[in-house]
Amino acid sequence: MKTISGVLLILTLGTAPAWAVLGEYESSVSLDQKYMRGEDLVITAQGYRLHQITSPNGAVVTEFVSPEGKVFGVSWRAAFMPNMDQLLGSYITPVQQAAQAQTRRRGGPFIVRTNDFVFVSGGHMRAFHGSAYVPSLLPKSVSAEVVR
């Protein structure tokens, strides 16, 4: 079940400056795996597949891929935050905007919802987790609830 696409990894490192993942093609997952120095477990599910990248330090990032090969969701669970620029790619912009615009919510989960992007960051110190997905990229008959 473990697959590592070494050739693809080298090519991507050599040519693509962007670390974008969410909304990008599956090949970008390899970059995350490299970045996290993790084991990539590929699991095929009904209507989609996922890469579960587990780092030696216990951080787990899961990337959800549609049959068309696009990453429609990501989730994370770790003692610290993963690099969100890398995980979210261009979708980091609405997250940054929402972070500036929070009103009265303090210390609770951080949520961003736009027309075509949903982001949740939760947990507490030593145990962070969260997920993000792009509704328009969800495969047919796959619920957003799988992204967790």
């Binding site: 919510r105 609770g108 989960p109 949520i111 949903v118 949740v120 939760g122 947990g123 997920s131 997905y133 957003a144 609830e145 799988v146 992204v147 967790r148």
Partner: peptide, 11 residues
């Protein structure tokens, strides 16, 4: 307040 995306939120 809201904690997440759907019932998939787990806390």
């Amino acid at each position: 307040g809201d904690s997440g995306t759907s019932t998939a939120t787990d806390y």
